[in-house]
């Protein structure tokens, strides 16, 4: 069902947690639908300096959260904002069709966090 990469990120998720003094927080999803994702970012010199997540959701939701934090870390804010759901799915060597929306969620959460950061810094 899941690729080895997905299972790896599910079982050993990177960057789990919260950032106390985050520069941006993005929260998407709905617990009723079984998914709820929060991404915290810390920005330094226009780059994602630190990033953490917390997710209530399926294996794919956790793995995509983990993967997007890896993809975003160190990128400029603009580049991080441009990460698409396909980028996430591809980096995980693919996701089952019904789980593609989970990677959507991860991209949305990161964008929401960046929006939140930008709104505070404009």
């Amino acid at each position: 069902m899941y690729t080895d990469k997905v299972m790896d990120h599910f079982q050993n998720p990177r960057n789990v947690g919260e950032i106390e003094d985050a520069d941006g927080i993005g929260e998407v999803g709905n617990p009723t639908c079984g998914d709820m994702m929060t991404i915290y970012i810390k920005v330094k010199d226009d780059k994602i300096d630190d990033i953490k997540f917390k997710t209530f959701g399926c294996g794919a939701a956790i793995a995509t959260s983990s993967m997007i934090t890896e993809l975003a870390k160190g990128k400029t804010v603009d580049d991080a904002y441009a990460i698409s759901r396909n980028d996430v799915a591809e980096a995980l060597n693919g996701l089952p069709d019904v789980k593609m929306h989970c990677s959507n969620l991860a991209a949305d959460a990161l964008q929401a966090a960046i929006d939140n950061y930008r709104s505070k810094n404009s």
């Binding site: 299972m7 079982q11 079984g34 998914d35 209530f56 399926c58 294996g59 939701a61």
Partner: peptide, 24 residues
């Protein structure tokens, strides 16, 4: 506070076969 699919997968990782009624 948790989702069943993840639970089933973690249990599977420990060699336990169980099931969930979760939508996911």
């Amino acid at each position: 506070g948790i989702e069943g699919e993840g639970l089933v997968l973690l249990l599977d990782g420990k060699g336990i076969a169980a099931s969930t009624g979760s939508a996911c």
